[in-house]
Design a protein around this nucleic acid. Structure first.
Lengths: 337, 337
DNA sequence: GCACAGTCTGTTAACGTTCACAATCGAGCT
DNA sequence: AGCTCGATTGTGAACGTTAACAGACTGTGC
């Protein structure tokens, strides 16, 4: 047998099966009106040649692919990474494939460029992880007819949106600390241009004000352990601080360490709660009480919403808000008497 | 102006600029022999129409895209996630885009399927994160002519490979503990079907045997804090254990916690070293001495090797082995006298 | 026997690029 | 003036698929 110079195409299969290329196409697309016997002959020819349809040709004529474009910041933050990997998995399950465009920053222009590259590939739809304002701005220029879902996007924007109810999670965390008997709760927050961080701040604040507790000054940080540590060093010096809610687990880790260094015991002297429930949180010293968002569910809901748009051919304005759950471990206790 | 029923194509631009479609193509591909004046006219027409070239059509005729296919296990392990996000960033820098296929398991078939989907999209090359044997097996069926780089792949396989020198890293870690005066070093290893884990085991073993130290029985784990904790509970009960090298930082975290629970102080009673230098490691209690691989460099080297193949049109058999560096923090001290 | 409605299959023309080649244009030289 | 050569531009044919339509082949009812 001669090694073929080019890969087998539909016509090659057709020739081998003794049918027209169009019939091969029909077999491939599960068109109903094909005789069983013909179908089998074609299938056999496909197998014999090891034929695989050329997606580019298909895309060229149909104008749409089975690819979902995702835009995300390149990062090793747990939440985004977990969401991303679930997204891909979920998409494959539905017969789609995921194309990820990473951006270094969440500024408008890089995001717009990434979206542009996706559109060039004629993706079937877009999932954009847009946790800050500027990332959302990039959506303004988007054509109306492209299916779109934002994750952690601007709640004030009318597009389809999947998000975790940060406010409820933070409220539960703060409430949990108040219930334990603490007079008030300090908050080490995430960067305040993140919607997530804002939601957690407002949930924390609501829990305090509803309970008539004093609202301590906000401690602002990024998402990393280092800044948790810096803020923790300050908190550790204030002897009246007995409860801290950190905007994520890594911040909480930094706080734990700063408290430890200064000899303030957790949870005996200070109680700490985090957010995210990273897999390691259960092994912090002490094991961390935290709020767990279901990132798999976020991914699944996003794909759901996107496919609904793709199928219906239009924006539906749906949104899904997922409520996280409080995971209680040993880092919370009543304040000392 | 009438809203166009379809997107502008090259012929539309050509008509507007008063040239042939071929000239437009030349402008787009930076072909040298185009008069400056013509180029400007074409550019103007492109801008006016908001024309964007159709990649599918281009792909159809050239047979290759500017897309790099990546296969990786969907996971939130720090190493793979860090590599993945760097890969995408690095690729974009070079004018490529990255298409990620996530697989749930590293078994042969799922990987082969993922590769198949990439080939269907006519990717320009493949980067496969293949840290276990079965993942490498899937590469057997691959056509010879597709550029390919494996990350953390089988060192015994002749393909292009980018990897971190696990053996050297583990050797350095173990040596560091011996230098501090410990009689021997225990190792909590990763899953032994991972090449990474094997390399770390053999580096550890070599350091011990070279020093004439006793080689304690191996403690086998997965990569997660939970199993570090379980193994740590055992280690904590053995009073003669004074030094532990954990195969990654999350295992080390579990060990730290188990030791703490049992009242064994780190580093006074037991010294601990990890591997990976996750961003949080510096905030463990105590801050963790660990081995830092440069994941950005891994990604950059991978893209380098891949583009070299793409440009030259053939496998080059190159490989890059990156040496990780030891990061010393407070979790190591001499044993008690 | 013949029209008729299905069912199945084939033919031709897109889709929007690039490639190979042909044609034209100018400048520089004889 | 005519020739040559390089620079610039145009023409027609791919690439491999789906869409639209046409044709052939069945069985059914009169």
């Amino acid at each position: 047998m001669v090694r073929p110079a080019r890969e087998p195409a539909m016509t090659d299969v057709a020739k081998l099966a003794g049918v027209s290329h169009q019939t091969v196409s029909r077999v491939l697309n599960d068109h109903p009106n094909v005789r069983e016997q013909t179908r089998l002959r074609v299938q056999a020819a496909i197998n014999e040649l090891g034929y695989r349809p050329n997606k580019a040709a298909r895309l060229l004529v149909t104008g749409t692919s089975q690819v979902i474009g995702v835009v995300s910041r390149s990062s090793t933050l747990y939440g985004p990474a977990a969401t991303l990997s679930s997204l891909a998995e979920e998409a494959v399950k539905r017969g789609f494939t995921v194309n990820v465009e990473s951006v270094r920053t969440l500024d408008r222009q890089p995001i717009a460029d990434a979206i542009g590259r996706h559109l060039d590939q004629r993706v079937a739809g877009l999932v954009i992880i847009a946790p800050v304002e500027s990332a959302n701005d990039a959506l303004d220029d988007l054509p109306e007819d492209i299916p779109l879902v934002t994750i952690d996007g601007d709640p004030g924007r009318p597009t389809e949106l999947v998000t975790v109810d940060q406010e409820a999670g933070a409220y539960a965390a703060t409430r949990h600390l108040l219930n334990a008997g603490h007079a008030t709760v300090w908050h080490v927050s995430g960067p305040d241009d993140w919607f997530d961080a804002r939601g957690r701040i407002s949930g924390w604040r609501r829990a305090l004000t509803e309970a008539g507790a004093e609202v301590p000054p906000l401690m602002s940080a990024d998402w990393l352990a280092a800044s948790g540590y810096r803020n923790g060093q300050i908190l550790a010096r204030m002897s009246d601080v007995t409860a801290v809610f950190a905007a994520n687990d890594h911040l909480a880790l930094g706080v734990l360490r700063a408290l430890h260094e200064r000899g303030r015991k957790v949870p005996e002297d200070v109680s700490v709660v985090g957010f995210d429930d990273v897999p390691e949180a259960a092994y912090y010293i002490p094991p961390l009480t935290t709020v767990r968002p279901d990132f798999d569910a976020v991914a699944a809901a996003s794909i759901d919403l996107l496919l609904a748009q793709i199928d219906s051919g239009r924006r539906l304005g749906d949104r899904r808000v997922l409520t996280p759950t409080l995971v209680t471990r040993e880092s919370v206790a009543p304040p000392r008497a």
